[in-house]
Simulated assay, not measured.
Amino acid sequence: MIKPERLKKGDKVAIVSLSRGMLGEDWAIHKLDIAKERLENDFGLEVQVMDNALKGIDYLYWHPQKRAEDLMNAFKDPSIKAIINAIGGDDSIRLLPYIDFDVIKNNPKIFMGFSDTTSNHLMMYKAGLVSYYGGSLMNNWSEYIKINDYTKNALVHAFFEPVERFEIKSSPVCSYSQDVVLWSEENVNTPRKFYRDEKGYQVLQGEGKVQGRLLGGCLDVFIELLGTAIWPGIDEWKDKILFVETSEVDMPDYQLCWLLRNLGAQGLFDVLKGIIVGKPAIEEKFEVYNQVYKQVIAEEFHRPDLPIITNVNFGHAEPIGIIPYGLQCELDVEQRTITILEPMTR
């Protein structure tokens, strides 16, 4: 896997809209203004909004090739050092026919986003590029009031000041989908509610320490990826640590069960080293989802020994960190720690 270079002051970052084109809507453009000011003033970066990123929901829905064109142009431009996706959605898989994997491979740079951006991450993975699950423009870089301290710490140590080993610690506070502040200029001074997280990381099963390279994404999006050219084959899953999370959509427990059974039928649970599960966006789903994971993996596919740590800070509950695709990670079940064993950028 190719690891991109770290960011430094004066570097240029590109803004793309690869999923739902809401960044270009009148009611949302202030989110770009907030993020742009922070990227420029707080981090010393130059911001370039790609040509089609602000053309709105309708245009970008009907023109997935234009979304892909922005992505390819951002990779081709040698002055651009990082690419930030605006927001998730539900159809970035439609960019696949327009992706040139050689362009990505030959022009490595930081790419970040989450949720529907899972499709784009697996495009990067197929091209052999390390990419970063987390940090979308409208969710994290443009949070009202300020970037959450937990998220900012992860961004700094992933992209600006990479360290030899980075422990992905449990955040002492949490916030769920019901706590979202409506995106409106009227609310720019309204803070999101956070609560003390009494759970921390939870060990669902397994023991000892395991190491493996990270691969995964949003389970909701896996449905669109199965059977495509970017879905990893079973050999690619061998010895990996799977990271998975669910979106703010209230996924029924039976649907989660079906998705996990599909992964089991592919043979993933026989070859994985471990699993980390993101904090659910809907708090009430914590125990329900844990029961489903344990039922399917431990009972139906007979892997009660496979280490699983849940309630991890990535995905759709806040605050979130950064999960790097393809990098070496260690799970220590007894200590309930998750550690990236190498610098996240070079």
Rank of each mutant, 00 (worst) to 15 (best):
I276R: 01
G217T: 07
I275N: 00
P108L: 09
Q65A: 07
P64M: 08
G315Y: 13
S79Q: 05
S175Y: 08
T246D: 06
V333G: 09
K55W: 13
L182G: 04
S119P: 04
E224S: 12
L137F: 15
P4M: 05
V271S: 07
G56M: 08
R346W: 06
K209D: 12
M112W: 07
E40I: 13
L306H: 09
H302R: 07
R6L: 15
D51Y: 03
H302M: 10
M22R: 04
V49P: 05
T118C: 07
M72W: 06
F286Y: 09
D26S: 09
F75Y: 13
I275M: 09
Y201G: 03
E185N: 01
L45G: 01
R213W: 10
E207I: 08
R94D: 15
K105R: 10
V249C: 04
R261G: 14
L260V: 05
A35F: 06
G315Q: 12
S115H: 03
V13Q: 02
Y176A: 02
Y150H: 03
E69G: 03
E300D: 13
G278V: 11
R6I: 14
M344T: 01
A68K: 00
D235T: 05
L268H: 06
G10W: 13
V156I: 15
V163C: 07
K146G: 10
D42F: 07
G200N: 03
V163F: 10
D332K: 00
V173K: 00
N187L: 10
C218S: 07
V271G: 11
V312P: 04
W62R: 00
A68C: 09
A86S: 15
L7Q: 02
F286D: 02
T228I: 06
N41D: 12
I282R: 00
I34P: 08
Y195I: 02
S247N: 06
N311W: 14
M1T: 12
R94A: 14
Q178D: 14
G267W: 11
C257M: 09
T228V: 06
K105V: 02
I80C: 02
T246V: 12
N313I: 12
Q205G: 09
A82R: 01
G216A: 03
D116V: 13
D253H: 05
Q202A: 11
I223G: 02
Y176I: 08
S131T: 14
Q291A: 15
P319A: 07
I87T: 12
S136F: 11
G88E: 12
E198A: 10
Y176P: 02
D91K: 11
K31P: 01
I2A: 04
C218V: 00
N107K: 00
S175N: 05
E167Q: 10
H302A: 14
I83Y: 08
M138Q: 06
G326A: 08
G88Y: 13
I223H: 03
D332L: 06
G128Y: 10
K105C: 02
N290G: 15
Y293F: 15
V292D: 03
D305M: 02
Q328S: 14
S184N: 10
N107V: 14
G200S: 07
K285V: 06
E46D: 05
